[in-house]
Nucleic acid binder design. Sequence first.
DNA 1: GAATTCACTTAGTACAGCAAAG
DNA 2: CTTTGCTGTACTAAGTGAATTC
Length: 724
Amino acid sequence: MRTKHKKEVKLKRLHSGAGGDPIKSSSSKTTNSQQQRDRSESPGKVRTLKTQEPLISTSGSLKPEPEEDDFTSNSAGVKRKRIKDELLEETPIRKSRSKKHSNDGDSEGSQNKKAKRQTKKAVKKEEGEHPVSKKVKRTKEEIEEARQLKMKKKEEEEQNRWRWWEEKKYEDGVKWMSLEHNGPYFPPEYQPLPDDVSFYYNGKKVKLSLAAEEVALFFAQMLDHEYTTKQVFRENFFKDWRKEMTAEERSLIQHLEKCDFGELHNLHKAKVEARKNMSKEEKQALKEANQKITDEYGYCLLDRHKERIGNFKIEPPGLFRGRGEHPKQGMLKKRVQPEDVIINCSKDSRIPVPPAGHRWKEVRHDNTVTWLASWTENVQGSIKYIMLNANSKLKGEKDWEKYEVARKLKSCVDDIRDQYLRDLKSKEMVTRQRAVALYFIDKLALRAGNEKEEGETADTVGCCSLRVEHITLHDQLDGNECVVEFDFLGKDSIRYYNKVPVIKKVFKSVKLFLENKEHGDDLFDRLNTSLLNKHLSSLMPGLTAKVFRTYNASITLQQQLKALTNQSDNEAEKLLSYNRANRAVAILCNHQRAPPKTFEQSMATLQTKIEARKEQLALAKTELKQAKKEAKAKEVFKCVYLVERKKAAVKRCEEQLLKMEVQATDREENKQIALGTSKLNYLDPRISVAWCKNMGVPIEKIYNKTQREKFAWAIDMTEADFEF
DNA sequence: GAATTCACTTAGTACAGCAAAG
DNA sequence: CTTTGCTGTACTAAGTGAATTC
């Protein structure tokens, strides 16, 4: 039986129309944002776990990369390789040298030059017989210098890195023993408009008060954006804007339609343009100023270790941009004052100093939490936190823990699956619904689906909050029996669209759940996330719905990597396989992105390149034939040589063509799929590290610098035989 | 036991910056 | 040298889930 509250909510939803079919809009015109969000595959295609297996047929025949890369010393890959080699073999020399270097600074002292010459020699030796062209040589010194600097930095970082994973963990909720920082950085004050720029109302020039002017500018800046055409956005903005106005302004400015922000908008555009056209020096100065801010506010001292802060800047004021059909879009996000901010640090530390003339809301010393500062945001009333960077101990330890819980699930997932399959037969409705929900969460990696407050957020759902209108049952579909069609908006209003063949018991159960329900009703009316998680934690300590997502993502990666890569593949093939395994996970987790704006075009240019290469190949082939013919007839040495050359040309052409085709396929497959989210949040990095070790692929090929820092613990501790 | 609060993870997008291409 | 295209980063919204309050 539904609770009274829920019933009320449903009714409201039905009447407001917000709960109506969010996909097929009632209006015949499809807006841009709808198109953008509508990223599912063409209807009629059944997306099952099976289709996640990569499909490119050329993968088995990719040839090694052409060697020519090795001769251009500015190729990033080669540079990286060298740095690594040197680091491994020459550490003692480098140490003394880098010290000297740091004394010299950037100047071109003679000592410096001497040191450089030494390295050059060493590099030469390493390169062996690779000839270096003259042109390259000239910039060699610069390259060398840059390399040295990089190396020095890398080394320093390595030495400074806090190997927290080798330390004992704190017990019972204690997050740190000492914490010191400089507080958050506040955005600059509002700069009033110049005199020659005005706002007009009803065609008349109006000088706005400072507060009203600032908010007007927020709107003017967004004028090019589609947001500003949306009714809800405009209404919310106008309402909040009027709150910022003086009484006279409020009585004058009654209609948004009569507002002319043209000059403000142009001013903004000019500013953007000016920023783009800044001189090198100006850009440099700006960069340095930013660096100074980062140096001062970007770090903290946690248990005597310097750690980077993730978001040390207070969010600037502006207009709230929710995702999807957010009822609060356009509302004013107010400027945060120091008086709104709570500081958290250790008692005996240097307490951060508030900006002149201000004080903090509160200074507390709570070492059971990880945040350094917090404030309550005015649009949703939620708390915002200043926290550490992903490469910090606090974040890393938690991440590690997360994957350990997921691995524990691996050891008992069979039992849990047996259990919920048995529960599908339960006479009790709660148990039965719980079983079906778990089945979905496990099989489809759905999110838990907490309830949300109506009217406060966009209408999105997860597993437990699925409603009648989000699923369609098909006894028969495309040759499959018992197909459940899912169509709903999930987190960030990203559409989840999937047709899944399920086992009979699940199908029957869902049919049962739907009986006597109508549009707007919950599919799982007896179930919520809290109930579900309570049950899960009784099956295994620490188990919650989201662990299934982590577990299934990581195990999928491991399986896919095993299935797709061969020891004998070349590096490019191995990386392609890695990407495909990654992609399988991203598809499972429904991680989507808007297709890049230039996608169609860049695809087309690639296609023309492929065509050109094909022609070239055909030409090369005919030339080869010709050469062969001649060689047969004459048997002259020169002709034999020519045949060899033509053969090589054909081969090279084929390789390049193949490479481009693979690239095209890869890009096409990736069009709407975002790999980053799963890589960063769902895939146990130890799987990737072990794979790299087994396959002889350098870790830099799959993780960029940021990612390597975040996963330093995994890179350091993982052996080749790691099993998730 | 429902609602609210709090802390923390997960998410896509805008845009800067850089390298390759022209 | 400029344009193009791509990658990495900053940003902040939107989830999850435990604890607390009513």
